[in-house]
């Protein structure tokens, strides 16, 4: 039986899955279930092994020298690495704040502008998507050529690093927030204004709180993007380097990296987990 026959009998445009005629539950084959779990184990194998390696007192991976915190100690004593960690965190924090504000206001403004000039807004959105669809290396090179050209005015360093991070984080905020602004019910704002609020108050007290979940998830995405970034920072950092650049440029591998990785894994794991729990409880509350 070919799909053509099926197509003739079953309407294929299905918008709501709940309307499906099927009430049979899906029971995957045993092989598929075990295969899936195997892939998941493989996905987490390096993360788990790094955590184990980080407590190995021996410098070489291949022999276990006993459990110790040696590498954590030397991690915190490593001045260069601590300095780079400070750079990484401060860049990520400042870039997140700036890009969240610029991106959110921009998304609200674009949604408003979309009523008058939809073509222009479409163009702006496709420019906004450039850093998202381009591989990092192209974005990195493009920013580097710009900074090379203005080198005599602005030397490559902390400021250019920060500008580059704001530039690639903002688009993530815009694509998270813009669709939510569009789908917002305009009557809510009108109601607020009918009750005597100014437009600014209506935006601040009605619109932004409504958008908060997507603003927050955008901000989190921006923070981790900035924190994790290697390629763009490598090209535009100049004198300032973040931890990724430090690790990449290390000539000989040191287990300090394992200790640092463990801390990063745990921190990011906790943040993502916390965020997921926050989201799901929020969803449940809304459903109620």
């Amino acid at each position: 039986m070919s799909a053509q026959v099926l197509k003739d009998r079953v309407p294929l445009k299905i918008k709501n899955r709940r309307k499906s005629l099927s009430n049979q539950e899906y029971h995957p084959h045993f092989a598929l279930t075990s295969y899936t779990w195997l892939i998941f184990i493989l996905l987490y194998l390096p993360i788990i092994s790094v955590i184990v390696f980080s407590f190995n007192s021996s410098k070489s991976v291949s022999n276990w020298g006993g459990f110790s915190f040696t590498w954590y100690e030397s991690l915190f004593k490593n001045r260069v690495l601590m300095e780079d960690l400070r750079t990484t965190l401060s860049i990520a924090a400042i870039a997140t704040v700036f890009s969240t504000i610029i991106g959110t206001l921009g998304a609200i403004g674009l949604a408003e502008l979309n009523k008058k000039k939809p073509k222009f807004v479409n163009f702006v959105l496709s420019v906004n998507n450039l850093p998202l669809v381009n591989p990092d290396i192209v974005t990195a090179v493009s920013l580097m050529t710009l900074f090379l050209a203005i080198q005599s005015v602005l030397e490559m360093g902390y400021i250019t690093l920060l500008l580059a991070h704001i530039a690639f984080c903002t688009p993530y905020i815009v694509i998270q927030v813009y669709p939510k602004v569009l789908s917002q019910d305009p009557s809510e704002i009108e109601a607020a204004m009918d009750l005597g609020a100014t437009r600014r108050q209506a935006v601040m007290k009605v619109m932004i709180p409504d958008l908060m979940p997507s603003i927050l998830s955008g901000a989190m995405l921006a923070f981790t993007m900035s924190f994790d970034d290697f390629i763009i920072s490598y090209f535009v950092g100049g004198k300032s380097q973040n931890i990724s650049v430090y690790i990449y440029s290390m000539k000989t591998f040191s287990p300090i990296v394992n200790a640092l990785s463990t801390i990063i894994f745990l921190a990011i794991g906790l943040v993502v987990l916390g965020f997921q729990v926050f989201n799901s409880t929020k969803k449940k509350r809304e459903e109620r």
């Binding site: 991106g103 206001l105 403004g109 408003e112 450039l130 050529t145 050209a149």
Partner: peptide, 30 residues
């Protein structure tokens, strides 16, 4: 309100012009 809201998009438009479009022009020039 219309103008005030759209004004909010100005920083974004500036950023996209200066830090996304302009760098591509520079790749081309280089």
């Amino acid at each position: 309100t219309f103008n005030a809201s759209i004004g909010g998009a100005i920083p974004l438009l500036l950023l996209l012009t200066l830090l996304v479009l302009l760098p591509f022009v520079f790749i081309f020039i280089y």
